[in-house]
């Protein structure tokens, strides 16, 4: 309408934005400090100044875990889109389109296999940028695929949730992913294979109240928000302020709900040691340091099984 709002403000905004192009610098959510993105990537998305663990993308996560950062993604079975024909302020199908446009991967979960410390491993990692990592039918199917693959390859299963919970737009079918995901992890357990969970920020709602809390070993990332009910819901119910550090990984450790809180730099090493201890019952297999490529991988047949 006027000169100030139409012309001056956008110009100023553009100037400010040019100072900090968002693809070069990242603001630390903990301290507000600007961190050079390259440096952050090299540091596995841990703030070099405060140690704050920023969210890491699903693909970056896989790269930090597998030997030499190499893994094979598994194609996931197709599931029904929009079974309820759900519409809130927006159609669910439109939300899916938006999410697909914004994301390289077209669902809230990725399933990969490869080797960790020379041993085969299957990893299912949530893709938080895809609709908040919410668990609908496709995610349930992804977990089942991962579990079947782990059983087939006789490999440990690592699941890494990062999810606000159930996908409301799939209604009751989302709720049904709670038992379905538990059937999945029980298949792995019954095959005598380790099922390890890495709880990352956030793990809440129907995701935390199902497969995520049933790991043989439960590891949490520092500072991650983990809990059943949302903080706002609890505050509204009890009408009091919540205690300091409520629902953080450290809080869960304190209350006996997880085995350990592990810094991202020590994660791969810790996981390999655990897999080793649980599966190599004789003398220890050699544990690789982070991203070491000296191990002779050719000696181990690499699993190339496809998902059913």
């Amino acid at each position: 309408m006027n000169w100030i709002s139409n012309y001056v403000r956008p110009k100023i905004r553009a100037l400010v934005q040019n100072d900090t192009p968002d693809d070069l610098w990242v603001k630390s959510p903990a301290t507000g400090q600007m961190i050079f993105k390259k440096e952050l990537e090299k540091n596995l998305w841990v703030c070099p100044y405060s140690g704050y663990h920023l969210r890491i993308s699903a693909r970056d996560r896989l790269k930090t875990l597998f030997d030499e950062g190499e893994y094979t993604l598994v194609e996931l079975p197709k599931t029904m889109t929009d079974p309820l024909k759900f519409k809130d302020l927006k159609r669910y199908t439109d939300r899916i389109k938006d999410a697909n446009a914004k994301n390289e991967d077209k669902e809230a979960i990725l399933v990969a296999h490869g080797s960790m410390g020379g041993m085969p491993a299957v990893v299912a990692v949530f893709n938080f940028t895809y609709m908040g990592g919410s668990m609908g039918t496709a995610v349930g199917e992804g977990l089942l695929t991962a579990a079947r693959l782990a059983v087939l390859q006789e490999a440990p299963l690592l699941v890494i949730p990062a999810s606000g919970g159930a996908r409301m737009q799939e209604g009751i079918l989302s709720l049904m992913q709670m038992p379905r995901s538990i059937v999945a992890v029980d298949m792995v357990k019954e095959a005598g294979l380790p099922y390890v969970v890495l709880l990352t920020d956030p793990t809440t709602g129907g995701v935390s109240a199902s497969f995520a809390m049933l790991g043989d070993i439960a590891i949490a990332e520092p500072g991650a928000n983990i809990g059943f009910a949302g903080k706002r819901v609890i505050e509204e119910t009890i009408r009091e302020k919540l205690p300091e550090g409520f629902q953080t990984a450290e809080y869960l450790l304190e209350h006996g709900m997880v085995d350990m809180v592990v810094h991202r730099h020590e994660l791969r090493e810790t996981l390999i040691r655990i897999f080793n201890l649980l599966t190599q019952k004789g003398p220890a297999a050699k544990v690789l340091p982070l991203r070491d490529s000296t191990e002779d991988k050719a000696a181990k047949p690499k699993g190339n099984s496809k998902a059913e």
Binding site: F228, G230, T237, I238, P243
Partner: peptide, 11 residues
């Protein structure tokens, strides 16, 4: 949804 319920592992 309560503090105690979360502490004692509702999930």
């Amino acid at each position: 949804p309560g503090v105690g319920a979360e502490e004692r592992g509702q999930s």
